[in-house]
Amino acid sequence: LKTAGVNTTDKEMEVLHLRNVSFEDAGEYTCLAGNSIGLSHHSAWLTVLEALEERPAVMTSPLYLEIIIYCTGAFLISCMVGSVIVYKMKSGTKKSDFHSQMAVHKLAKSIPLRRQVTVSADSSASMNSGVLLVRPSRLSSSGTPMLAGVSEYELPEDPRWELPRDRLVLGKPLGEGCFGQVVLAEAIGLDKDKPNRVTKVAVKMLKSDATEKDLSDLISEMEMMKMIGKHKNIINLLGACTQDGPLYVIVEYASKGNLREYLQARRPPGLEYCYNPSHNPEEQLSSKDLVSCAYQVARGMEYLASKKCIHRDLAARNVLVTEDNVMKIADFGLARDIHHIDYYKKTTNGRLPVKWMAPEALFDRIYTHQSDVWSFGVLLWEIFTLGGSPYPGVPVEELFKLLKEGHRMDKPSNCTNELYMMMRDCWHAVPSQRPTFKQLVEDLDRIVALTSNQEYLDLSMPLDQYSPSFPDTRSSTCSSGEDSVFSHEPLPEEPCLPRHPAQLANGGLKRR
């Protein structure tokens, strides 16, 4: 031991701790050491302190810390799992109470259905409401065949629209698609105040090879029609059969078919879209009749726009005509997947739907009320060519290029400059510069009032120099000039209409 001194630092001082000593042992101690050379000694003081209470040693090893962490984590996880189980049990009790009230408590799974309603004014964004509309049932219905791709499903009954099956008599087919079909039928007692009145209706139903998605689409269309409500110039929902059998959606019946066929059937002799010497046209149409058709469609679209509904496929083929020549817009409630459109795929009647699409819908897939206005301009062109085919002879690839360059279709022969300028306004490259349906209704209403009933179509000018029955994407082998976009001569082996020498072909294109 070194004694503290003047020249001794703290580091040089050493402390020796002795245990089991008493206060009597306190004092100075000297350590002597010697050898043959000499003797040396050092002294140190022993200080006795009071004994401290002994405390248990605390484990601070890493293993002990890990044990604490794992135990704490396990406890927290157990609490979370327990909370989830309690929540599930409570929510399951509430669901079972709800389904027992709906009398569908025996169901095993559900079809996820979404009601898609486009509400954005400047995009294709949609509001999806995840309302459960249908659930599968283990119960089988008697007297009705089961669908191959869709098991029997039981829908919640809506008393406002439900019609008993025994009050619906199915008739002949009116048309069909890939998985759905429409048949003519007679409904008894659609009007609650007149329970014995028989009404001719159209009934939409699924085919035998339909899938769950097809069922989902049909129900979504029905729900959309319920929500949009009734208007004179749209196909209205009349009722539905949802209980004890396949789903039947009952809508208004339009006896004169779609507008395109309606116009073609009323072309003057010699100007029909397909040469037929025995062709006997229906009643002749006046200019006022054509303007009235456009006015009614505009009114229907104005109503749909007021309900925040974007059609996305407005064309003469999707406008139906009733016995009283009332125009009714159809298929506005269809669920369309705008992100998976095949631009080169034709519709069932051979038309390319892209020829009715606005550039922003075609290139950027942006659907708005103003893109519907563009389609309405093409529909106007169809009306005043009596069912002509837009951009005849123009392949899709060429159409993309022409639209980007600002080309537009030429004025039809039997169309006034004012109406043609309306078409051109609908085809404005900037969507915000196109008229609204409200403005179109006002303009067409004024034109109808000024147009005489006696103004019949000028038969001295050809209505349509093209054969719409030909595929639109076909290139002409005998077109006049180098560019078949601006002219389209008859093919030698097929009868077509004579070309008027002083008139540019109706399907020609102009640059805006």
Score class of each variant (00 low, 15 high):
352 L>P: 02
234 I>F: 13
262 Y>D: 01
242 T>R: 14
206 L>F: 02
358 A>V: 01
314 L>P: 02
383 I>L: 14
280 N>H: 06
247 L>W: 03
290 L>R: 01
219 I>T: 11
212 E>Q: 03
409 M>L: 09
454 Q>H: 13
228 I>M: 06
301 M>I: 08
219 I>S: 12
411 K>N: 04
429 A>V: 13
426 C>Y: 01
339 H>Y: 04
425 D>V: 08
234 I>S: 07
271 L>M: 15
371 S>T: 04
331 D>Y: 11
195 P>S: 08
188 I>T: 08
452 S>F: 06
456 Y>F: 12
374 W>L: 01
397 E>G: 14
374 W>R: 04
341 I>M: 13
443 D>H: 05
433 Q>P: 00
327 M>T: 06
278 S>G: 04
358 A>E: 03
205 M>K: 08
395 P>H: 12
348 T>I: 02
484 S>C: 14
301 M>T: 02
384 F>S: 05
427 W>L: 00
344 Y>D: 00
346 K>N: 15
397 E>K: 05
485 V>L: 14
367 Y>S: 07
458 D>H: 13
210 A>S: 11
469 S>R: 11
375 S>F: 03
355 K>R: 03
381 W>R: 05
379 L>V: 11
247 L>F: 06
299 R>G: 14
323 E>Q: 13
337 D>N: 08
336 R>Q: 00
392 P>L: 01
206 L>W: 07
181 Q>L: 08
290 L>P: 01
267 R>K: 02
299 R>L: 11
367 Y>D: 02
302 E>G: 07
269 P>A: 07
419 L>Q: 11
252 E>K: 14
444 L>V: 01
267 R>M: 00
169 V>F: 15
188 I>S: 10
380 L>Q: 14
401 K>R: 10
393 G>D: 01
346 K>R: 14
221 E>K: 02
475 S>C: 13
366 I>S: 03
303 Y>H: 09
229 G>R: 12
235 I>T: 08
377 G>E: 02
468 P>L: 03
327 M>K: 10
402 L>V: 06
342 D>H: 14
390 P>L: 07
393 G>S: 05
258 N>T: 03
370 Q>K: 11
433 Q>E: 05
450 L>M: 11
230 K>R: 14
469 S>T: 05
469 S>I: 09
220 S>A: 14
350 G>S: 05
341 I>S: 14
294 A>S: 14
227 M>R: 12
414 N>H: 11
448 V>E: 11
415 C>G: 02
287 S>F: 07
435 P>L: 01
418 E>A: 11
408 R>P: 00
242 T>S: 12
185 A>S: 04
240 A>V: 07
436 T>S: 07
483 D>Y: 15
268 P>L: 03
422 M>I: 11
170 L>F: 15
252 E>G: 15
454 Q>E: 09
476 S>Y: 13
189 G>E: 11
451 T>A: 13
254 A>V: 15
206 L>V: 09
450 L>S: 12
193 D>N: 09
304 L>R: 00
168 L>V: 06
225 M>V: 12
366 I>M: 05
397 E>V: 13
363 F>I: 11
444 L>R: 00
239 G>A: 06
459 L>P: 13
229 G>E: 14
447 I>V: 05
461 M>I: 09
466 Y>S: 13
275 Y>F: 08
357 M>V: 04
272 E>G: 08
377 G>R: 02
314 L>R: 01
240 A>G: 05
392 P>S: 00
468 P>A: 12
264 Q>H: 15
441 V>E: 05
186 E>D: 09
295 Y>D: 12
171 G>D: 06
379 L>I: 08
232 K>N: 13
173 P>R: 13
204 K>Q: 03
433 Q>L: 08
234 I>V: 15
263 L>P: 01
340 H>Y: 01
352 L>R: 02
407 H>D: 00
425 D>A: 10
255 S>P: 10
284 Q>R: 06
376 F>I: 05
460 S>T: 04
439 Q>H: 10
257 G>D: 09
425 D>G: 12
280 N>S: 11
432 S>T: 13
277 P>S: 14
338 I>M: 08
407 H>R: 07
354 V>E: 02
195 P>T: 08
174 L>Q: 01
439 Q>L: 08
253 Y>D: 00
260 R>G: 01
343 Y>F: 06
174 L>R: 03
460 S>A: 11
238 L>V: 11
395 P>L: 11
214 D>V: 14
323 E>D: 14
464 D>G: 05
304 L>P: 01
180 G>V: 02
305 A>P: 01
474 R>P: 06
378 V>E: 14
252 E>V: 08
259 L>R: 00
278 S>N: 08
216 S>P: 12
339 H>L: 04
170 L>I: 09
399 L>F: 03
435 P>R: 04
450 L>F: 04
262 Y>S: 07
454 Q>R: 13
324 D>V: 14
278 S>C: 07
414 N>T: 11
360 E>K: 02
417 N>H: 13
281 P>S: 12
435 P>T: 03
301 M>L: 05
392 P>T: 12
196 N>S: 04
207 K>T: 02
356 W>L: 02
231 H>D: 14
409 M>R: 00
171 G>A: 12
176 E>Q: 14
278 S>T: 04
426 C>W: 00
354 V>G: 01
373 V>G: 01
459 L>V: 06
179 F>V: 03
458 D>A: 06
388 G>V: 07
322 T>P: 13
262 Y>N: 07
176 E>A: 05
248 Y>N: 05
279 H>D: 03
261 E>K: 07
275 Y>S: 15
195 P>L: 06
361 A>E: 02
257 G>C: 06
339 H>Q: 13
474 R>Q: 10
209 D>Y: 06
249 V>A: 13
297 V>M: 01
334 L>H: 03
383 I>V: 04
372 D>V: 02
309 C>G: 04
300 G>C: 01
330 A>P: 03
359 P>S: 01
417 N>I: 06
167 R>G: 12
327 M>V: 04
221 E>D: 15
259 L>M: 03
371 S>C: 06
253 Y>H: 09
427 W>C: 00
227 M>V: 06
347 T>R: 09
263 L>Q: 00
205 M>R: 07
338 I>F: 02
394 V>G: 02
306 S>A: 09
329 I>L: 12
234 I>M: 14
240 A>S: 04
421 M>L: 11
462 P>H: 08
312 R>L: 00
445 D>A: 13
434 R>G: 00
293 C>Y: 09
419 L>P: 00
365 R>L: 15
387 G>D: 03
414 N>I: 12
478 C>R: 14
316 A>P: 01
285 L>H: 06
436 T>N: 11
364 D>A: 06
197 R>H: 10
467 S>Y: 07
294 A>V: 02
276 N>S: 11
322 T>K: 15
354 V>A: 01
349 N>Y: 08
346 K>E: 15
233 N>I: 04
355 K>T: 02
307 K>E: 11
288 K>M: 06
268 P>H: 04
465 Q>P: 10
428 H>Q: 10
318 N>D: 02
302 E>K: 13
475 S>I: 10
199 T>A: 10
293 C>G: 04
329 I>K: 05
343 Y>C: 08
388 G>C: 02
343 Y>N: 03
173 P>H: 03
470 F>C: 10
333 G>R: 00
371 S>R: 11
372 D>H: 14
446 R>C: 11
233 N>K: 09
229 G>V: 15
182 V>L: 06
264 Q>E: 01
409 M>K: 01
477 T>M: 07
457 L>Q: 14
283 E>G: 07
364 D>H: 14
477 T>S: 10
394 V>A: 03
210 A>T: 07
343 Y>S: 01
372 D>N: 01
267 R>G: 00
347 T>P: 02
380 L>M: 12
391 Y>D: 08
437 F>V: 04
414 N>S: 13
209 D>A: 08
187 A>G: 06
387 G>V: 00
457 L>M: 12
328 K>T: 14
310 I>L: 06
207 K>E: 01
270 G>E: 13
408 R>H: 00
284 Q>P: 12
448 V>A: 10
381 W>C: 14
172 K>T: 13
453 N>D: 05
277 P>A: 09
281 P>T: 14
167 R>I: 06
176 E>D: 11
177 G>S: 07
448 V>G: 14
210 A>E: 03
183 V>A: 14
467 S>C: 06
244 D>E: 15
203 V>L: 09
191 D>V: 15
219 I>F: 15
450 L>W: 05
185 A>V: 02
412 P>H: 00
317 R>S: 00
317 R>W: 00
431 P>H: 09
249 V>L: 15
388 G>D: 01
